[in-house]
Amino acid sequence: MDSEKHDIVVTVNGMRYLRQAEARMLLSDFIRHELLLAGTHVGCEHGVCGACTILFDGHPVRACLMLAPQANGHEITTVEGLAPSPDQLHPLQQAMHDKHGLQCGYCTPGILMTMTAFLAEHPVPDEAQVREALSGNLCRCTGYQHIVDAVLEAAEKMRDVK
């Protein structure tokens, strides 16, 4: 069977990478183990848990449901690219800290990627919208309440800035 490697040129968090990968390599594995950006987590590898959510050309997708060669020529943002600087967190990261929106933190990167995109599109969300947007990311620790609080608070803070 063919295990030829494909050239992949991909921009991740603003940095361009050139790597080779086998066709079948999942994009989640490529990001974690080839690009060594291990902040993107893998929870189920069948598209249910949402831990591996990344922004692909600006939109949240499951990295476990794409193959690495599909990223060729595209732009990706991962959790490592979210904070504006090493000393400053993204408002949602900050709100997750302030509201205790994470416990083990394993699902957190996926939630951050999903919900930052959501907030960009819904600057004035209500709790029901937040819960619906969050429903594709499973968290086993928090019972979601503090995450919902954090997203609502981040929305408010981001509006204040604007």
Partner: peptide
């Protein structure tokens, strides 16, 4: 008190077993 461990987890810098290379 807000958690000391959060920042690493929120920025993708916390080491989990599968992150060991």
């Amino acid at each position: 008190i807000k958690r000391n461990e959060d920042k690493r987890l929120l920025t993708g810098q916390a080491l989990f077993v599968d992150d060991v290379e």
